[in-house]
Design a protein around this nucleic acid. Sequence first.
DNA 1: CTTGAGCAAGACAGATCTGTCTGTCAACAT
DNA 2: ATGTTGACAGACAGATCTGTCTTGCTCAAG
Lengths: 194, 194
Amino acid sequence: MTTTLDDLAGPGPQPEQDARTRVLETAYRLFYRDGLRATGIDRIIAESGVAKMSFYRHFPSKQALVDACLALRHERWNGWLEDSLRDAPDARAWLAALPDALEGWFRSPWFRGCAFINCHAEAGADAPPMAVAHVRALAARLEQRCRDAGLTRPEVRATELMLVVEGAIVRAQMAGADAAMPPLRGLFARVLAD
Amino acid sequence: MTTTLDDLAGPGPQPEQDARTRVLETAYRLFYRDGLRATGIDRIIAESGVAKMSFYRHFPSKQALVDACLALRHERWNGWLEDSLRDAPDARAWLAALPDALEGWFRSPWFRGCAFINCHAEAGADAPPMAVAHVRALAARLEQRCRDAGLTRPEVRATELMLVVEGAIVRAQMAGADAAMPPLRGLFARVLAD
DNA sequence: CTTGAGCAAGACAGATCTGTCTGTCAACAT
DNA sequence: ATGTTGACAGACAGATCTGTCTTGCTCAAG
């Protein structure tokens, strides 16, 4: 069971799923595609084919649904990254293959940037803590990989790689994957070289 | 007359200004601080101390006000960058001093990331064209500076610097200036060194 | 003094958003 | 057979949002 890019922001729920799953999958897709504030409850209700009371039975409020979507996103994104770099024999190869994995994401037809960066950009100080927690978790993972790879000054390298990854995500969002990939590969190679 | 950081997202309008200016300055501040969708017309009306009809006399719609704020932001941000790097004797020094200028911005009490990245993150495909135009203009300016500095492969360096700048802005937004500045300086030095 | 422009204050309409409530139906267990 | 549970459908309330309209005030030019 591998995590595909479609799972990251795919075509939406299947009709045979139960009400809660359909709501969650529909919201997951619409929140990412159109934004949190721009997506109303009524739209999620209509597109998931669910009664309003069924929605409020499973989620006490819209904010609870947002939190559930972000938690699902966090889990799926981490799983997708893990699967994409499963073949790397060691930490060094894992880091070197990271741009390839990101490129597959950037070229996905539903790519619209990092859901957590977008959430934080939209909500500002009111953003759910999951937003910063996600990027902090990724930074911690990068630092651990740099340490495992035996790089010199691993925490310095990790912060540089983290900045490059986030920059590439935003660059792919604003200017497209073709604009983001060459500098991403070049900078990654430089940071990993020494 | 220099452009200060306060002008980028400062304390707001002065009461002696005319109605249009007060609306524009209030919206400029609230849109950046709270987001476009989260800021309603009524709030702008109330905080700028202006009648609703006075608002709609100067701006035909909320979208027109958003566009005017983005255009003002574009102009002020470019002016601020120009002023901050005015002392650089040549293009090479200009590029080397860019992280210092950015740090001043990141540590401003009203810093909340790039208004155009945030706008694009919030509105997605419906974002006004000014959003991508701003980052494209900055990329073009970086490339020209790289060319003027006599760097080898200036277009490659410029795209790398652009990715680093955008990454630093997002990193400062998500994790603070202290997390963004060391990798920003390190990567800048590496790209400019050769 | 009159007249007209600009502005403040606020009512109003229509749409939309969140959240609650009622009613109906099908599946299922006792 | 009967009660329970989950779900669909949709009305409804209250708030909020955009945009229009009316009224009255001030000030300056003619």
